[in-house]
Nucleic acid binder design. Sequence first.
DNA 1: TTCCGTGCAAATCTTTTGCACGGTC
DNA 2: GACCGTGCAAAAGATTTGCACGGAA
Lengths: 165, 165
Amino acid sequence: MSPTARTVPTTSTTACAGRRAAGGRDWLERAEEALTAAGRRRGEARRAVLELLNNQACALTAIEIEDALRTQRRVSRASVYRILEELEELGLVQRVETGQAMVRYERVADQHEHHHHLVCGGCGVVMPFSDEGLERAISSLSERVPLTVSEHEIVLRGECRDCAA
Amino acid sequence: MSPTARTVPTTSTTACAGRRAAGGRDWLERAEEALTAAGRRRGEARRAVLELLNNQACALTAIEIEDALRTQRRVSRASVYRILEELEELGLVQRVETGQAMVRYERVADQHEHHHHLVCGGCGVVMPFSDEGLERAISSLSERVPLTVSEHEIVLRGECRDCAA
DNA sequence: TTCCGTGCAAATCTTTTGCACGGTC
DNA sequence: GACCGTGCAAAAGATTTGCACGGAA
């Protein structure tokens, strides 16, 4: 595979195929610290969500999170949304718009993990990918635009191999 | 302004700043033809929506369309959604996810008009932009990815000049 | 003891659907 | 005259909010 465009096939969720987190321990620690620093108390529901997100390489919807947690620790959907909102405000989690009527959330990766998404219109699978050339184009472009760019989001849509077969 | 990154400041809607359509007449014609070819009958509501979209350089939400039309010809929101869905199926209109809880729609431009979006997190304004380098990066990348890419969507988020001031 | 985190239930808001009427073909 | 396009009202979903209780600090 080209060194500049990598995607990882191992599936970790029905909804989002991707590798399990590498170096995710850092994120979990960082998250706990940030929450404490923000003066937040601990709570079981949030711990469960953090742990789940930490093991996820790609974006999940609130409902997928609720379902995934159902077996180990029932967390109400309202709490899932509240927790995600809180994490988003602290910059620990980001929204991903895949054009599927539901917002997806994933932990904010360090530079090394920065990626975007491929969405199959057939089965709805979401896969992460990253590309240096694309990032270069984005950052160069960001300087020529009438907006102080702080984030960017890229979604490629098409048909995955399974669906094409 | 750089020749490779252009944005146009003239505002045509509260929600989406951009130039009025140039060469839009082609799109309107094309749309009418496609609809006829698909065996659809004419209808006032749809004509009003088509005309509005044809004069819009950038993406609108269903509700914005309903509001914009209110003065000249009341079109029920259900019809707006139905019409947009129909136009999307015929490839005349495309959805734009700006991460604002509502889907936006805009007419599918010819190659010359292809663009992406800048979204200000402060005031919510949406502006179109286009960049050749970006498009090159996308098309080269599309060949190295495990998906037959048919569309791509790019959103840059940040703070617009007015909000930064 | 104080106050936050969480669950539950109700409210919101966008988008979809069912049904009936009027216009297009 | 047959059937589609449209409006209106209700339904369906996702997300948010109000409130009360139990646990963290």
